[in-house]
Write a protein that binds this DNA or RNA. Sequence first.
DNA 1: AAGATGCACAACCGCATTGTG
DNA 2: ACACAATGCGGTTGTGCATCT
Length: 295
Amino acid sequence: MGRRPCCERKGLKKGPWGPEEDEILINYINKHGHGSWRSLPKLSGLSRCGKSCRLRWTNYLRPDIKRGPFTLDEEKLVIQLHAILGNRWAAIASQLPGRTDNEIKNLWNTHLKKRLLCMGVDPLTHEPFTSGGPTTRPRSSPATRHMAQWESARLEAEARLSKESLFFNSPSTSVKPDPDFFLRLWNSEVGESFRKLNGEAKADCRSPISQASSSTKCGSVSGVTIDVGPIAAGSSTPKSSRTEDPIMFDASFSSSSNESEDSSDTALQLLLDFPINNDMSFLDDVDTYATPPQC
DNA sequence: AAGATGCACAACCGCATTGTG
DNA sequence: ACACAATGCGGTTGTGCATCT
């Protein structure tokens, strides 16, 4: 038996949402929570499929959504995270409080991608074009891929911590960040395998940890201060399924599951300061960045 | 003034993954 | 272990508005 279509009921409304529908959805969720998205339309009286309701809520109606144009820092952060994570919009969005994956995806496709192209930077690889135009290399360098794996693992840890803290702690108990978590991870066998894999690619660069401790960088990516609100608060639970390296994933969390404290700020800052192969020095020139060349 | 074009963003579609019996 | 339902994600399309010709 094949998959049943999401919206099997005929006569379900499609297209833009009206204010009445928004109101019904908001009122219902405020009162009952969304529970099962599939049954929500029936229970609330909306002629929409559950998927549509979920999308409308998460992308538009959620009270914590920050509307309005992206700030320069947000745009820079999106570019940096995209260099690390690729088109994993949900993961990127989890680092930008109040912004949705859809919003970021649109920002990227309509603004940032073009801006990078205008500046001679390949939006896929985040590297400057060669004289022959966009590079035809694989999408990301080995170092970038491993950083993405690290990020996947870290995001998964946060999701797990969120669950555990919800499960074990009373609502009044806040989770204390553990700035050493990333360091312990780095020093574990997981970090070891990462260093092995990454060693050749970056003989001239040190680990994120050593860089952080000495504040010396061999790249020029940094300069952005990040507010990692939602993650620290445990309100974001990125999908684990996107983790591409099961070995890394399993090892990291079998060895650290009892050290379940968050380290989002430190880890992310380290991650963003890490000099991946992508030369993003153009981001340092704020004037140039803010007023892209005509092309 | 009117049609053409471009842009921004909301919404949809299909697939992958996860949860459950 | 398997099948199926539910959910989440990313790619793509549709729509409304602004600008251009």
